[in-house]
Amino acid sequence: MTQNLEHPRLLIEYLQEKAVFVGKEERLIKSTELPKHPLNKCIASVSLLAYVVISKYCDGLPLYGLELILQRYGGEVTRTSMANWVIRLSLELQPLINLMREHQLSYDYLQMDETRIKVLKEPGKSPSSDKWMWVSRGGPPDEPVVLFDFDPSRSKELAARLLDGFEGFLQCDGMGSYDAIWHSKGLKQLGCFDHLRRKFVDAQKGAKVLKKKVKRGSPVKHTWA
């Protein structure tokens, strides 16, 4: 095999062992099974697929950025190809996601939060509008499971769907979408200490502003709850 040094190519070889058993009347050939690839007729190795998924979802690297990174190493993998791989992988990995969901809901403690993300081509949404990645963490303490669910909204219907089948303690930030779920599903509400701390920080900032107004002789309006 010749190799162009200006445009090097990586040759991946899969070695399959074979054994020949010779008998008196026949010969029997047995071969070991080749490692199965999750995507049929896909040029990407399993390691490359794992790298794309981790870069996109764990490191927050968009596919167009990953395309440029691979180009620096001499790769010719387009963002369209990588997007198709991710879509096909999502279908193949759905049974695993379902199993992880069941494992997560088997314990009586669950954490949930929503994080703003930007999506360039979301139908009916502008690139600058907020979309949400719902993150849930739960399961036995020694075997926790973290799942990510994307949705353009923070609706109570989505929260109800993600919490379907869960019974126990739910720890979240107290967003309004959860209000209709606590009693209907019989969940026990746990607060978030980080969000609680923010209220004390806001109170401290408000006290400083009030103190400045008093010193300047400005009228102070009190609002009583």
Rank of each mutant, 00 (worst) to 15 (best):
L163S: 06
K199R: 13
V86W: 09
S45M: 10
P8T: 05
R72Q: 15
L147Q: 13
I181R: 03
G191T: 11
G206C: 03
Q16V: 15
R9A: 10
V209F: 02
K121Y: 09
I117G: 12
K208Q: 11
S129N: 05
Q94S: 08
G23V: 03
S90L: 00
K56R: 14
E25A: 10
A180W: 09
G139T: 02
E25L: 07
M175I: 08
G217F: 04
V52Y: 10
P95V: 03
S153Y: 12
G191V: 04
K30T: 05
L96M: 12
L34S: 11
I54P: 00
S218P: 00
D108I: 00
K211A: 12
G217I: 03
I12G: 00
N4W: 02
E17K: 14
S136T: 13
V77R: 03
R198Y: 04
S90W: 01
D108W: 02
P62M: 02
F150A: 03
C192T: 09
K125Y: 15
S90E: 03
D164A: 14
G65R: 14
E13F: 04
K41I: 07
K24R: 07
L170E: 10
L70E: 12
R197L: 15
K199T: 05
E102D: 07
L10D: 04
L163F: 10
E157Y: 12
Q104I: 04
V146E: 08
K118D: 09
A180Q: 13
A160C: 05
L163R: 08
R72C: 13
L5V: 12
M133Q: 13
Q104C: 15
F200K: 01
H222W: 10
R161H: 15
F193V: 05
V86N: 05
L91R: 14
K121S: 02
Q111F: 14
S45H: 05
L93F: 11
L110R: 03
K56H: 05
K131A: 09
T223L: 12
F21R: 10
